[in-house]
Amino acid sequence: MGFEQSPHEVAVYRRGNGGNALLVGIYVDDLVIKGIKEEKMEAFKEEMTAYAKRVIELGGLTDCNPALTPTKDRLKLSRDSTAEEVDATQYWRLVGSLRYLTHTRSNLAFIVGNISRFMQQPTTEHLQAIKRILRYIAETLDYGLHYSRLSGSLGCSTISLARILKQWSLGWTASPLWLWRRIPSSTSEASISE
């Protein structure tokens, strides 16, 4: 994707220079996107959404019923499953695609890691778990919070993004800041406030 890791912060990446620069900060289940030009940020979000849609299509769930969570409560998968085996190659493709997707959807890392344990002999039970994840992705394609600068300065409380922006000469400009929160929660507070 052409991103360069910050030498000052391991969870911050940059693509482009000057007015075309785009910064992406990753913190637990958040993805913070900052750029001088809003169209660059929109293009990045569209790239990620398009990839997620391709993964859903790969799983054959284009018009699926969405799921509100990536897994069922107390789901227990086993290597000793007696369920019918499925095409291992297709299972590998789906798991690999989901593993790549966890770079921008870090809240999926645990469940994707869990289903990755069954690559040798995947069964319909394991494939159902993948389909549940894909249904969740379909539900959350457009989740995100948009913070536009009205007045005053914008501060960060979760990562020192302001320091990184200053080091890369991006500063807080009139351009908006995007925060993609991957896990919707009524008790969560936004990581960035004005």
Rank of each mutant, 00 (worst) to 15 (best):
H126K: 06
F118M: 10
H126M: 04
F118A: 09
L141T: 01
L127K: 08
K131H: 15
Y147T: 02
I137P: 06
S148V: 01
P122F: 04
Y147L: 01
E139W: 13
G152I: 01
Y147E: 02
T158G: 11
H146A: 03
I133P: 03
D142M: 04
G144V: 02
C156W: 14
K131P: 02
L154D: 08
S153F: 06
G155I: 10
T158L: 12
Y136S: 09
M119A: 08
R149E: 02
C156I: 09
S148C: 04
H126W: 07
F118T: 12
Q120K: 12
Y147H: 02
Q128C: 03
I130Q: 08
S151I: 00
G152V: 00
Q120E: 10
I159E: 11
Q121F: 07
R117D: 10
T123Q: 10
A129G: 12
L134G: 05
F118D: 13
G152P: 11
T158V: 09
T124N: 09
T123A: 06
E139L: 08
T124E: 14
I137G: 03
Q121G: 08
L127H: 02
Y136Q: 11
R135M: 13
Y136K: 06
R149I: 02
P122Q: 07
R132P: 12
G144R: 10
R149M: 02
T123F: 07
C156F: 15
R149F: 04
G155D: 11
L127Y: 00
R135E: 14
M119E: 04
S151V: 02
L127F: 00
H146L: 06
Y143G: 08
G155M: 09
G155C: 08
Y147I: 03
S151Q: 13
R135V: 10
A138W: 13
S160N: 08
E125R: 10
F118S: 08
G152E: 00
R132M: 11
I159H: 12
G152D: 01
H126S: 00
R132I: 11
I137C: 05
H126F: 06
L127D: 04
L127R: 04
L145D: 13
R117T: 04
S148L: 07
T124Q: 13
I137T: 01
R135C: 14
L127M: 07
Q128F: 01
L134P: 08
R132V: 14
R117M: 15
D142F: 06
K131S: 11
L134A: 03
L161K: 10
L154Y: 05
L127G: 03
Y147V: 02
E139P: 03
R132L: 13
L134N: 04
I137E: 06
I159D: 15
S153C: 05
S160C: 07
L150C: 01
L134W: 05
L161G: 12
S160M: 01
T158R: 12
R149P: 00
T140Y: 14
R117Y: 12
R135A: 15
Y136P: 13
R132Q: 15
E139I: 04
A129N: 14
L141F: 01
R135P: 12
E125S: 13
L161N: 10
S151M: 04
L154S: 12
Q121N: 14
A138L: 09
L154V: 09
I137W: 10
Q128T: 03
E139Q: 13
L127P: 03
Y136G: 09
Y147Q: 01
L150V: 00
A138F: 13
I137K: 06
T140N: 11
Y136T: 04
H146T: 00
S151L: 05
A129Q: 14
